[in-house]
């Protein structure tokens, strides 16, 4: 079994997939980081030209903001749900003032989180597609499936070996994304921000976003949560791609199908609030990280638990279909 997995992984390495993914990641993360830095610089220059000083004195502004927040906290009449988020806002501001960091300075931790938020629905699934799309159909196209089948190993073991190898590669790719974006952003911005306080833990109560249960985590913990969710999405995409790749035999068709569901699914999201069935399509549930960041339009009945349930059922169904089809398939190459 181990040998089978090893064999599959070495195939992926030999096909230079990892290096392709690496290059794509470096290019895109580099561009994103450059863009962020550029926007930051131009904001700074805009502010300093407006205040007629040579540099922006943000501590005055931050202290003022802090005073207003404390004032608001003192009022006994603010709704209870608002208290927690005000407290976290205060902690954040105090952290910035204490460490002498301008609140709008881009940090490596925030960049890494933002990168996952932006790419979780499209870019990361496409990277996984590179890994998974020809896992089975590639063997058909090149005819190597015959060599594989002539071994005295049951078919399910072959597929299981492929699947485990795919899962491992997916895991490594997610780690690679996290490490690369942290490193590139860290060297670009020269500020890591791993201990910067961040708010998370929003709930949906009766269809509105409720912030009473908000908790504060460090930048590092936040990254960890977001990338754990990203990993979950990647695993589901890998499994679905594996199923398609077994069903259609040709790599190009497999890629086409996954791509069109990904893009078509994005359009389907416009109907989410009115058309309940759209909630059960896997693409509608890919944006898991939004549940942690709390930056989304709440939709009745959609929560992290719901999305996980939907994605898990897609995962199990794809595995079931993959194994039954692969075991019974006539191989005519």
């Amino acid at each position: 079994m181990i040998a089978l997995i090893e064999n599959e992984m070495s195939k992926m390495f030999f096909k230079k997939k990892i290096s392709l993914i690496l290059i794509l990641l470096i290019v895109f993360i580099g561009l994103f980081a450059y863009g962020e830095q550029y926007v930051y610089k131009s904001t700074l220059s805009r502010f300093s030209s407006a205040s007629e000083g040579d540099s922006l004195d943000w501590t005055v502004l931050a202290n003022q903001q802090l005073a207003i927040l404390f004032e608001r906290l003192d009022s006994p009449y603010i709704p209870e749900s608002g208290i927690k988020s005000i407290e976290i806002e205060i902690k954040q501001l105090q952290y910035f003032i204490l460490n002498d960091i301008n609140p709008i300075t881009p940090s490596a931790a925030r960049f890494t989180v933002d990168f996952a938020n932006q790419t979780i629905t499209m870019f990361i699934p496409l990277l996984i597609l590179i890994l998974a799309s020809d896992l089975v159909s590639g063997e058909f196209t090149s005819g190597t499936i015959k060599l594989l089948m002539t071994r005295a190993v049951p078919r399910w073991k072959i597929l299981l070996g492929k699947y485990i190898a795919l899962l491992m590669m997916t895991t490594l790719v997610i780690l690679l994304i996290a490490i690369l974006s942290t490193l590139i952003a860290g060297f670009y911005f020269d500020y890591w921000g791993f201990d910067e306080p961040m708010p998370t833990g929003f709930h949906l109560i009766e269809g509105t976003l409720d912030s009473s249960g908000v908790i504060m985590v460090s930048g590092l913990q936040y990254m960890f949560f977001i990338y754990a969710l990203t990993w979950g999405v990647a695993v589901v995409i890998a499994s679905i791609t594996l199923m398609i790749s077994i069903l259609v035999n040709t790599t190009a068709t497999a890629i086409g199908i996954i791509l069109s569901t990904l893009i078509g699914g994005q359009f389907l999201q416009y109907f989410l609030s009115d058309w309940p069935i759209a909630k059960y399509f896997y693409v509608s549930n890919l944006n898991l990280s939004k549940y942690l960041t709390g930056s989304y339009q709440p939709i009745e009945g959609m929560s992290l638990a719901f999305s996980t349930g939907v994605l898990l059922s897609w995962l199990f169904v794809s595995l079931l279909v993959s194994f039954t089809v692969f075991i019974r398939k006539d191989i005519l190459v």
């Binding site: 998370t200 908790i215 949560f225 990338y227 754990a228 990993w231 979950g232 942690l292 929560s303």
Partner: peptide, 10 residues
């Protein structure tokens, strides 16, 4: 991490 996230947003 996934499970922790689940419990946070529950």
């Amino acid at each position: 991490g996934y499970f922790i996230s689940l419990s946070i947003t529950a």
